[in-house]
Design a protein around this nucleic acid. Structure first.
Lengths: 199, 199
DNA sequence: GTCTATACGCGGATAGAC
DNA sequence: GTCTATCCGCGTATAGAC
């Protein structure tokens, strides 16, 4: 046979990787099937032997991207809360992440497009986000801190990327770090008590 | 004369309002000049008597939207910090705002598109955001709190809107409120001292 | 599984009549 | 200022040969 048994699944992974980078850079809607397949080294007709539609690609893409993000969170080795937070800030709230959306988190780049997508995409998003929430809540004390942490990270990156000047990007990123420190390491004891107390 | 002297500027404002709502709902890139002018009750050829290109429309749109948002911030009458924060949460971190992007803040809906736009758009964004930062810093103590507040609001709305289930949207919005309370009202004294102290 | 060719619609933008 | 008509390119998707 001309194509190995694993060729299709290998090619699919490659397509997802290319589509992820292109989408985060230009927006999913702006990425054409034609340009995508050209970047992958094949012609556009071949696309539909891997995905039945562009929406199916989006579903697979969001799932893969958020699974990758989850792996990053799981990979944080620190037990101490302050050290854990520093580790996350050092990988997420950085100028490199601001400058290179194609290699970064899908949420600041594609969040608004997920919000406009159909329910099948949103269901995949929700499932992945709940995993992340639970993982973060076990570290940070409660769901409030988990969602607050994620919203701060995503929001800061979004606001920073739209800035034309580097020093303003830097200011926002730095503010995100400090704000999280204030919110998480300085109020942790209180909030943990409040979470287990009566309500 | 068939058209009053103010007709053009009136029509321009109307076009911006329609374009703003449509863009926040579907994404700016997805809004066609044709559909836009149809929604405004005229034909597509008339568009270019108001804007020289679609990019010029985007610039005018972002400026108008962020000026509107600034007016909302200025309109908060409360002196007490906790009351001020409640007022902001009650108008921004709500289910109504999650459900109706077309009537809400431009940043969660269009932030990623601003980040991909050319520098002329980003400059307008930066100018407006610096005004908002300064206004917020005077209320919240320092730039860190100002950016942190904005990032939390924008990020929470973005994450919530992509959720398919209402109760999850509600959970994220509610977490945003509580997180801001913890971060701003509970650490305000410390951070204000830190901001004026040596460093 | 991948190729070429193609159908069909919508995107932004322009020309010239009224 | 607005209209109609039109140019041209790119979008998704499909059919059929190899």
């Amino acid at each position: 046979m001309r194509y190995s048994p694993e060729h299709k699944s290998t090619k699919r992974k490659h397509l997802l990787a290319v589509a992820g980078a292109e989408s985060k850079k230009k927006g999913f809607a702006a990425v054409g099937v034609d340009g995508l397949m050209q970047a992958a080294g094949v012609t556009s007709g071949a696309f539909y032997s891997h995905f039945s539609s562009k929406n199916e690609l989006f579903k697979a893409l969001i799932e893969m991207e958020l699974q990758d993000s989850m792996q990053m969170l799981v990979g944080n080795p620190h037990q101490d809360l302050a050290a854990w937070l520093d580790h996350e800030s050092d990988r997420y709230l950085t100028m490199s992440h601001v400058r290179h959306p194609e290699a970064g988190c899908a949420l600041p780049a594609l969040g608004a497009e997920i919000a406009r997508a159909d329910d099948s995409v949103k269901q995949i998003y929700q499932q992945q986000m709940l995993e992340a929430r639970d993982m973060l809540a076990s570290r940070l004390g409660d769901n409030t801190a988990a969602w607050g942490f994620m919203a701060q990270c995503v929001g800061a990156l979004l606001l920073a990327r739209a800035m034309p000047d580097e020093d303003m990007q830097q200011e926002i990123i730095q503010a995100g770090r400090q704000f999280l420190q204030r919110a998480i390491t300085e109020t942790d004891g209180d909030s943990a008590e409040a979470a287990t107390g009566p309500q």
